[in-house]
Design a protein around this nucleic acid. Structure first.
Lengths: 334, 334
DNA sequence: CTGAGTTTTGCATTCGTATGCAGTTTGGCG
DNA sequence: CGCCAAACTGCATACGAATGCAAAACTCAG
């Protein structure tokens, strides 16, 4: 039923061999101009399109990159997804998308490897060490995006989460906040771990201790609940550092609309990521900006170094962050 | 270098034929329990994983669905992407993602077809009629998601944009608004066309004429500019219908933070889509809800009807919408 | 017009798996 | 114990394109 046109059919129509057709569609191959034209004409007439699947089989390169993601409701990831896919497309690669549900990452990754992807980018979920080994064995480069697993053989591209957390601590202390709170993302995520560690390091350096801590699980609801809990306590915080912007929006909504408090007069709030929404005026969120474009660029170069140049050493890139001062945190010297 | 394990290697190790290995991994094939076990053991030991590329080549089914998208900054699409990909995964299909840049859709779609995707879902960009024909020729089902091209041979799943626009008009008029404005998305998008047509139909039925109209291009900035222009005019609107929520947020920010106006006291605003953000308290956007889950479900069943059952007729599904009353539009009888 | 050097071309094989066919084994039942 | 059907197995081939190799065609200088 399917109207599949093959190179052999084109070859017959153009009165050349199948090889000639193949070479016509292989950049850099040796084909006489006349032959090429005959082939192109026949191809156009028949509606021929080289079969990427067959090509992959023989060339050993699928030109597909497996991308594992989840939680696309946090705007950070869709944006990464869009730009990364676009960057890969520009280089002739395409993105096979896997949405990982908590729990079945390994199972899904199995399937992804079955598709012979040339590399894997993990933008969420963590790589189990078993899978990491499998990828290593199969010589499939893996890049962890925005996460880092210390002793794994995978490459990673992250921003300097520790420094970011530290900057937030310094900033909040310098601007006179006394009761500091932290809303964590997921306990086991590397971004949360580093952001929190940096924050705590900053507090310790100033001799301040953390007044409140709760886990928001990177969800809107979790963050809202945590905020309520904080504010109901005996010593409510005067500043909340939230592990990412997505949760910070919920914190702001809860403080302002839910509890009728003023931000930053009553409570300061600082997020992390600097998603586009953070700049929207309804929020105007003070936050730590991740260098999204640079991270994507780094990911792409890393990938191509390994895919096309053949570099093998695993690399861990950590890019600098910067605090973006907007309207949700009292400023120093104010 | 690549440590590729093939079915032949497993066959040797398990002392069976390559066919036996193949059959072991083919659900429903006839294999003796003992043989299956020997094969499985050998496979596990060698780390064998069936090569989906080779399988596609011979079976003629890639089990990949091409998904074309763009504008992932509008939260509606990431969510669709996530849920759709998940639903497809659950059925053993995977998503090959293409980000279309305005202008090169055709060129990209070409590549997508080269990958032998079993079907195409277009969640943005419109299908040129040339491409539509190519897909038809290749017997590749195409589903237009949230868009509709009247005389094309493609299936479509949309919500009732016309009825939604109409409801907004009725609602705004009933609640006593006099100066109505509309901010369009992109002129050539079917969603915009239908939403606007429905809105105008409602106005006409009430004998009201549209006071203002501008094109926001589905962008934050475009909507902000349009709002400024409206409010600078001699007869500023007391209600603005915005073609989607993404732009409506910009309208709200501009009215409130930019111009110091109160919503809905001074101006009412209604959006379209009901993305999760619309429910966040900082916005509390009154909007028309698209039945996202139902649309995805419809898309998936449509796809599978065509892929596995073999139905061929093209279908156009149009699902009902509902107005969600929140806080950005004055209510009738208030 | 000849011969050496360079392009172009076709043949045959390869990638890894699925499957029709025919041959072999197994099991059930009389 | 014998026989037929059913279950299982292996062989050979196919999917569509890329590529090493050797033959053929062309180029150009002498």
């Amino acid at each position: 039923m399917k109207n599949r046109v093959t190179s052999a059919q084109v070859a017959i129509k153009a009165d050349v061999s199948q090889s000639a057709v193949s070479r016509t569609f292989t950049p850099g191959a040796s084909v006489a101009p006349g032959t090429r034209k005959r082939v192109m004409d026949a191809a156009r007439e028949l509606g021929y399109r080289p079969n990427a699947i067959a090509r992959s089989l023989i060339s050993g390169q699928s030109k597909m990159i497996g991308l594992i993601a989840a939680y696309l409701d946090n705007q950070f990831y869709p944006i990464v997804l869009e730009r990364l896919a676009k960057a890969l497309q520009a280089r002739g690669y395409h993105t096979l998308l896997f949405i990982s549900e908590p729990g079945d990452q390994d199972h899904e990754l199995e399937k992804l490897l079955a598709y012979q992807v040339d590399a894997v980018v993990m933008a969420s979920a963590t790589l189990s060490s078993a899978l990491a080994r499998e990828c290593l064995d199969a010589a499939i480069p893996v890049v962890l995006f925005n996460r880092d697993v210390p002793n794994s053989p995978a490459n990673s591209v992250t921003s300097d989460n520790f420094a970011g957390g530290r900057q937030v601590a310094d900033y909040l202390i310098e601007s006179g906040h006394k009761q500091l709170a932290y809303i964590a993302g997921a306990e086991n995520s590397s971004t949360n771990r580093d952001r929190e560690a940096g924050f705590l390091a900053g507090l310790e350096a100033a001799g301040v201790s953390l007044a409140h801590r709760a886990v928001g699980g990177y969800t809107h609801e979790g963050a809202a609940e945590a905020t309520h809990a904080f504010m109901r306590s005996d010593n409510p915080p005067d500043a909340i550092f939230v592990a990412n912007d997505h949760m910070a929006f919920a914190v702001l909504d809860t403080l302002r609309q839910g509890l009728g408090l003023r931000v930053p007069e009553d409570v300061s709030v600082i997020g992390f990521d600097d998603v586009p929404q953070a700049a929207w005026k309804a929020y105007g969120l003070t936050t730590v900006a991740q260098p999204t474009d640079a991270m994507i660029e780094a990911t792409v170069s890393l990938l191509f170094d390994q895919l096309e140049v053949g570099h093998a050493e695993t690399t861990r890139q950590c890019l600098p962050v910067s605090l973006v001062e907007r309207d949700t945190a009292r400023r120093p010297q104010g």
